[in-house]
Write a protein that binds this DNA or RNA. Structure first.
Length: 548
RNA sequence: GCGCUCGUAGCUCAGCGGAUAGAGCAGUGGACUUCUAAUCCACCGGUCGCAGGUUCGAAUCCUGCCGGGCGCGCCA
């Protein structure tokens, strides 16, 4: 029995009690959940439904709980139901009812944990979006890991997802980049406001390799951007991140989408003219100040392009536009939300802006700021060079994006318990190893129908089963809350439960002992664990090694 | 000044209104003739920044302070 099944059973039993007692069934929720109490004395699962409903129907919580407990106790698979505290229902399952989960998980395989929770939603995810003026730096790195994990989570939850990288290869940043390249090629010093990392010299040299007599700004701009962007894509690819769409701001201008956006905003009545410029009255929707769309010199502002880009995404059918920004851009949230409202959208539904706090790479307690390539910032390549792809992705995805984090290079490259990614990956390797050894001695799971779930009655087996059962709910809530770190934390919990199971419950026969049904049942559990760990790591873009 | 965000064990961090607030590290003490100990077990460690409020119940929600980070252009 899965937690979801049990929750449904609780609700069914509650409905039966309501009917029997003539209570108003209209107050019953559509769905409910059961919790997994930390304290084993509180049962395998607990429901707070009696507490939630008692006031609504005017029945004292413990009295309502007693009625629910009696009805629930009659349901198949449930061993006992106790009332505790103000009206908690503490539920214990039959070992067999709990154990079948192992088989369900193995049979579901890579699909285990996938739900239709977000079915019908069309979600656009924009992240990284670094302009091709240098390597992807620290602000983009966190979102490369978290945004990519989020896209996998949302897809696993049934949403239709489009990932997107937005860039501008025609603006003044690019001018400075091109001027820096040209100066480097000519052996001149870095221009004022130019870019100074070592990569500038490398790219400049590559441009000269391709066009030996290159000496125009235009040549360096065109080829330099091409080379830089290819490099960004390559380092993202090495990191395991691919985008469905690379969106260039130039295309918005070329297609006249800024004019169109302005027209739409004007129709909605939120624009005005002042000081020779065209403004959007974002203060109508809570922004600090109104924003200029078209400057008095006739040029568009960057914000105008943001408006057009948002409209473009909406026109492409995305009902939820998610944009991931670094903390240094959080000042844009107000105007972006207001802009969405100005289009007539509901910013609470149609536009989500996620702000990721800053990341420091730390070595020996000192922040690592120097980069050979980019000069003063830490790049994606620095991360991968220092930690490797798996540890880098896991380290970035393991923490709430709301908190600033320090990533200790020494910790994340260690092969011990303190390194969470090794701790989790070691379970993947251990389960694979047990499966290999089992095959060698002729131990197989056997046919699904011959599986005897009731044999999985050991405390550590029960703990592991309960942990594995949480997986679908963890994935769904991580997707809904846009918080991939929940998956990582959960995997660490499963890893702990498996290591404790491994320590206490031997799967393989000793010496030439005959093979028993218990060992076969444990092999189901072993393989179910591997399924959950592999599925969860896949959501984070981290490998589940067969051996370590 | 205004806004966003964070403040939980010595350190790094979990905890989408539930029971006695958790994990790892650090510290102390244990477990390897093993299914690879890259593991496991025990002990130690807390005014959940402070003060109010909401309610059966608050680390969690609301308000005000205090402290850290970041941001407040007709820049891109």
């Amino acid at each position: 029995m899965t937690p979801a099944n049990l929750a449904a059973t609780v609700l069914t039993a509650t409905r039966a009690v309501f009917v029997a007692r003539g209570l108003d069934a209209a107050v019953l929720p559509e769905t409910t959940t059961v919790e997994r109490p930390r304290n084993p004395e509180h049962g395998d699962y607990a429901s707070t439904l009696a507490l939630q409903l008692s006031k609504k129907v005017g029945v004292p919580p413990r009295e309502l709980a007693a009625a629910l407990a009696e009805e629930l106790g009659r349901q198949p698979g449930i061993k006992s139901v106790e009332i505790a505290g103000p009206g908690f229902l503490n539920i214990r399952l039959d070992a067999a009812a709990a154990g079948v989960l192992a088989r369900d998980i193995v049979l579901a395989g890579p699909e285990y944990g996938h739900t239709g929770r977000l079915a019908g939603q069309r979600i656009n995810l924009e992240f990284v979006s670094a302009n091709p003026t240098g390597p992807v730096h620290i602000g983009g790195v966190r979102w490369a890991a978290v945004g990519d994990a989020l896209s996998r989570l949302l897809r696993a939850s049934g949403a239709e997802v489009g990932t997107e990288y937005y860039f501008n290869d025609a603006g003044s940043q690019i001018d400075r980049f091109a001027k820096s390249l040209l100066a480097a090629a000519r052996g001149e010093p870095v221009p004022e406001d130019g870019y100074g990392g070592a990569y500038i010299g490398e790219i400049a040299a590559q441009v000269r390799e391709r066009v030996p007599d290159a000496d125009s700004l235009e040549t360096f701009r065109e080829i330099g951007v091409e080379l830089m962007f290819a490099e960004i894509k390559a380092s993202l690819a090495e990191f395991g991140v691919h985008f469905d769409t690379y969106f260039n701001e130039k295309d918005l201008h070329a297609r006249g989408e800024l004019d169109e956006a302005l027209e739409r905003l004007r129709e909605q009545g939120h624009t005005f003219e002042a000081d020779g410029a065209t403004w959007l009255r974002t203060t109508d929707f809570g922004d600090d100040k109104d924003r200029v769309l078209r400057k008095s010199d006739g040029d568009w502002t960057y914000f105008a392009a943001d408006c057009a880009y948002y409209l473009d995404k909406r026109k492409r059918g995305f009902d939820r536009v998610v944009i991931m920004l670094g903390a240094d851009h959080h000042g844009y949230v107000g105007r972006m939300k207001a802009m969405s409202a100005c289009f007539g959208d509901d910013p609470a539904v149609n536009l989500e802006i996620l702000i990721g706090q800053l990341v420091n790479l730390v070595r020996d307690g000192e922040p690592l700021r120097m980069s050979k390539r980019a000069g003063t910032v830490v790049t994606l390549e620095d991360f991968v060079d220092a930690l490797g792809v798996d540890a880098a992705r896991y380290a970035l995805a393991r923490y709430s994006s709301d908190s600033q984090i320090d990533i200790d290079i020494d910790l994340w490259t260690r092969a011990t318990r303190d390194n969470p990614v090794y701790y989790v990956q070691y379970v993947a390797a251990r389960t694979a190893n047990v499966a290999r050894n089992a095959a060698e001695v002729g131990l197989t799971r056997g046919e699904p129908d011959d599986f005897q779930p009731g044999l999985l009655a050991h405390e550590k087996e029960n703990d592991l089963l309960k942990a594995l059962g949480e997986y679908p709910a963890v994935v769904a809530s991580a997707a809904e809350l846009r918080e991939p770190h929940r998956v990582a934390r959960y995997l660490e919990e499963v890893a702990g439960a498996y290591h404790r199971f491994y320590d206490k419950c031997r799967v393989l026969p000793m010496g030439d002992e005959p093979i028993t049904d218990l060992q076969r049942a444990r092999l189901w559990l072993n393989d179910a664990t591997r399924t959950v760990i592999a599925n969860g790591l896949a959501l984070l873009g981290v490998s589940a090694p067969e051996r370590m």
